[in-house]
Amino acid sequence: MMKIEVTSIQILRLVLGFMISVTVAYITASITQSLFVLDGLKGVGADISTSVYLQTIWHDIYGLSWGGYTSYGRNILLAFAVAMPVASLVCHFMKMPKSLIFPLAGSVAMATLLFVVKVNYFYNMDFYAGTRSYFGYLSQLFAGALGGLTFTLITRKSS
């Protein structure tokens, strides 16, 4: 009875950890995407106030979550659904630290996602405009790493 209870908590923690890590990755990715787009507009003379920043960030968090095959939210969810279990296996069998492997898996998930969308759906063009620059692209990998790290922190066993 006790064993079943512990397993349920573990499953709950895994599911919760997964959902929160996807949310963290998505929101970070969306916000940084917006910031790089706005930075591009500022670079050509647009005056962007704080309220416009906030309005854009809010709009894009919503806007990027829709769109069928190209929904950023959906794609991050799918990418993490593959990356996190694979990272788990790597940690288990290769005895590697979770705090390294899960963030790395998050980054790889984002890189793969961006590549697949670019090649399959968009004639080899950057589908998410905020990823056009080198640092814009890195910011998305960072978002993935942050998601992976969140997953590690939530699912780690309490000592």
């Binding site: 854009t56 806007g63 968009f122 405009a129």
Partner: peptide, 11 residues
């Protein structure tokens, strides 16, 4: 808006 659903510009 962009194909992704994000703003090209808020204006």
């Amino acid at each position: 808006v962009d194909y992704s659903g994000a703003y090209v510009s808020p204006f």
